[in-house]
Amino acid sequence: MSDGKVFMIFQDTADARPFIEALTQENPAATIIHQPGMIRFEAMGEIGITRAVVEELAGRDVDLQELHLTLISLSGNIDEDDDYFRITRH
């Protein structure tokens, strides 16, 4: 992990809500930028979410790959499994 910047951008829609809230909760150091139609999360080195948190927020079972529906863009190296989704800089 380094101090390079990573980001994730989501659509500002109801479907993206559990992911947006999980990102907010789980990455307190991240900067959150609202722009028309979208929300951008920026952080140094790493950003990520875990399935348990997203499920808790959504109030249902969630497959993390559902983030493909509302993710607009990202920057960094992806590390993904059933239970977490992370973006890092080496």
């Binding site: 659509q11 139609g37 493909h68 607009i72 863009s73 990202l74």
Partner: peptide, 17 residues
């Protein structure tokens, strides 16, 4: 347009990867 744009861009995270 923003909807098709962001819908296309949601594939783009895969393409960029």
């Amino acid at each position: 347009t923003v909807t098709f744009g962001f819908s296309a861009q949601s594939d783009e995270s895969r393409h960029m990867t």
